[in-house]
Structures are given as C-alpha cells and as structure tokens.
Amino acid sequence: MLSSWVWSSMRLGLSKSLSRNVGGRVSGERRKVDIAGIYPPLTTPFTATAEVDYGKLEENLHKLSTFPFRGFVVQGSTGEFPFLTSRERLEVVSRVRQAMPKDKLLIVGSGCESTQATVEMTLSMAQVGADAALVVTPCYYRGRMDSAAFIHHYTKIADLSPIPVILYSVPANTALDLPVDAVVTLSQHPNIVGIKDSGGDVTRIGLIVHRTRGQDFQVLAGSAGFLMASYAFGAVGGVCALANVLGAQVCQLERLCLTGQWEDAQKLQHRLIEPNTAVTRRFGIPGLKKTMDWLGYYGGPCRAPLQELSASDEEALRSDFTNNGWL
C-alpha cells in the first residue's frame, strides 16, 4: 500500500496543482498523445484473502509485454476499480508504471461519480505516472445525466487535468450512453483526445468518427467483438478485454485491418466473437479471470460481491473457447 508519507505528498501536490490554475486551466504545456493501437485492460489480481496481489500483477504484465500492444489500460472496468480504495487504485497504477516497458502508453481510469473527485483522482493518477486519463461517465443520478451535465463534467476535468483525457462510454455497466452531440462538442476541447466506446453500436462509432473529422480526436473500440467493424468505420484501435488471454490474435486482427486484408480479418473476427462475448457480456470478469488461469496467466478470484463461476458456467465458457480453436 502507499505509505502515509507518499499519500500526503500526493495530496500536497494536488493542492499545488490546483493553485497553479490560470484562467481555469492548469498552467504549463500539455503533451498531445496518439492513442492508436490495441490495449489490454488489465485485471486486478487478488489473493485468497481479497488483498491486491501486486506480485501477480507484475507477472501478468511481463507476459503481456511480449505482444505488440500500444500500451495498457489500468483501472478500467476490467480492473474492478469500483471495488478498490483510492490508495489501492493509485498503488496499482504506480506498480504498473514501474514494471511496464517505457515505450508503452499507460492509460488510467480516473473516473469517479463527482466532478471534483474525478479531478482530484486524475491529478493523483498523473503524479504516479499515467500518460492519459480514461474517464467513465458518472451514472448514479443517471436521470439527470444529459448532454449539458456531461459537457460540464468533462470540460472541467479536461481544463484541470495535466494529462490528456479520453471519454469512456460503457452502457452495459452504467445503463447510459454518452450522447453523440456531447461527444462532438467535447471533441473540440484541446485536452480531450478521444473516446473509448464500449456500446457495440458500430453505426454510432461511424457517426462519431464522421462528426469529429477535422478535430484532433480518435475513437477506440471498447471490445474485440466489433473491432474489425470499428476499424472499417474509422476507429484507430481498441481496448479489448480479450487481449488479456488472446493478445497475439487481437493484435493480428489489428494488423489485418490496417493492411486491408479484410477477408482474413473477417475469418479471424468470426472466431473471436464467441470467446469475446463469453469474457465480457456473458460471464464478465469472473469468466475472463478463469480463462486467464487456463491460458498461463494469473486470474484468481474476484473481489466480492463478484463470485466465481458455477460448474455449468465454467463448462460453457470452456466450450466457447474450444469450439473456436483457442483451447
């Protein structure tokens, strides 16, 4: 865990960062980031007593670093971030930053329900090494989360963030989409560089690409199940949970799309749809972690209230991988 001294230093750094704001923006030059590429959203390993297992985290990271990923996403939905304390979230990012290859990009989930808390978390994530902040839509008061609320929320965060901001729409978890008109407005902010869209609606992805042309704004598919279609519509990459277990295959699909080998890309995409659905919508993180155990990584338990798979679910999960030739 982060020591009290380190935590106090982060809080002090946060206060100093906020005090340096000029005209509502953090002073100093921000670095533009090209986010094109494939990213596995790292899982958070836990011990049998539900403590974060930092050793297993680093072991998984070293194995995943052998694939041609653009970088890693830490503390996204796959990382069980709602179940971690603020200190754990920062410690996980710090450990990954120290262990990962220096030429890889580190995108870090910093979203919280309130704008103020998200600003504070984003600043703290930047201090422990994040290259960009992935900010999920707040959703608890979803009935009031309209375009105006989202534009205000993300503009404030981007104004104050010392690192680039990536919008994150994941309706399967939040029960709401970030409206396209809000995305288009936010794409004009100089410190908002893209969106990870996990909804699976490729026509929406195409519309976002179309309506943000001319802006320095990039779209990432939020799942391997619609990666090929997203590339065809103009996306530049993907954050794919499946890449935690089939990293070589997801990167191969990227290469086939980028080189225009669409027939081969289609064949590979077809073989990835069922296993991808299994480790996302069907069995979720428990399914992904079980598959990691099968394929040479450490999956281990989830943190409660997530539970392990039943025997019948485990059998169905294995079938989705064996039927497509991956186990």
Score class of each variant (00 low, 15 high):
residue 310 S to H: 04
residue 310 S to D: 04
residue 301 P to L: 03
residue 263 E to S: 12
residue 285 I to A: 07
residue 273 I to E: 15
residue 259 T to A: 10
residue 298 Y to H: 08
residue 303 R to G: 05
residue 296 G to P: 08
residue 289 K to V: 06
residue 264 D to F: 11
residue 262 W to H: 06
residue 307 Q to I: 09
residue 258 L to S: 11
residue 296 G to L: 07
residue 308 E to Q: 11
residue 294 W to Q: 04
residue 309 L to R: 04
residue 264 D to T: 08
residue 286 P to Q: 03
residue 288 L to E: 05
residue 312 S to N: 04
residue 291 T to S: 11
residue 271 R to Y: 14
residue 291 T to V: 14
residue 282 R to K: 14
residue 299 G to C: 01
residue 295 L to A: 03
residue 298 Y to P: 00
residue 311 A to C: 05
residue 301 P to S: 05
residue 271 R to I: 12
residue 282 R to P: 04
residue 258 L to D: 09
residue 300 G to Y: 02
residue 284 G to W: 06
residue 261 Q to H: 14
residue 310 S to P: 00
residue 294 W to T: 03
residue 259 T to Q: 12
residue 276 N to F: 09
residue 279 V to N: 03
residue 262 W to F: 12
residue 279 V to W: 06
residue 285 I to N: 02
residue 288 L to G: 02
residue 272 L to V: 08
residue 272 L to W: 06
residue 300 G to P: 00
residue 258 L to N: 13
residue 285 I to R: 01
residue 293 D to Y: 11
residue 268 L to M: 13
residue 301 P to M: 02
residue 276 N to D: 15
residue 288 L to K: 08
residue 300 G to Q: 00
residue 293 D to M: 02
residue 305 P to Q: 03
residue 270 H to N: 13
residue 301 P to K: 01
residue 261 Q to D: 13
residue 294 W to Y: 12
residue 307 Q to D: 00
residue 259 T to W: 08
residue 303 R to D: 05
residue 280 T to W: 05
residue 305 P to Y: 09
residue 306 L to T: 06
residue 304 A to G: 06
residue 278 A to L: 07
residue 292 M to A: 03
residue 309 L to V: 09
residue 265 A to Y: 07
residue 267 K to N: 13
residue 274 E to M: 13
residue 304 A to V: 11
residue 281 R to Q: 13
residue 287 G to M: 10
residue 278 A to N: 05
residue 268 L to K: 10
residue 289 K to D: 05
residue 269 Q to T: 07
residue 291 T to R: 13
residue 289 K to C: 04
residue 290 K to M: 06
residue 281 R to W: 15
residue 306 L to S: 01
residue 283 F to M: 04
residue 292 M to K: 06
residue 261 Q to F: 11
residue 294 W to N: 02
residue 311 A to N: 08
residue 310 S to Y: 06
residue 306 L to G: 01
residue 279 V to L: 05
residue 290 K to H: 09
residue 303 R to L: 10
residue 260 G to F: 11
residue 266 Q to V: 12
residue 278 A to E: 04
residue 283 F to I: 01
residue 304 A to H: 12
residue 264 D to G: 13
residue 284 G to H: 08
residue 310 S to W: 05
residue 292 M to P: 00
residue 274 E to N: 14
residue 275 P to G: 06
residue 291 T to I: 15
residue 293 D to E: 08
residue 265 A to M: 09
residue 263 E to R: 10
residue 311 A to G: 02
residue 291 T to G: 02
residue 281 R to Y: 15
residue 300 G to C: 01
residue 305 P to G: 03
residue 294 W to S: 04
residue 265 A to Q: 03
residue 301 P to G: 00
residue 269 Q to S: 13
residue 267 K to R: 15
residue 300 G to D: 01
residue 277 T to Y: 15
residue 271 R to M: 14
residue 275 P to Q: 11
residue 277 T to C: 11
residue 263 E to K: 11
residue 304 A to E: 09
residue 263 E to L: 12
residue 267 K to E: 14
residue 287 G to D: 04
residue 273 I to V: 15
residue 261 Q to W: 09
residue 261 Q to K: 14
residue 265 A to N: 03
residue 282 R to G: 07
residue 297 Y to M: 04
residue 306 L to P: 00
residue 291 T to F: 08
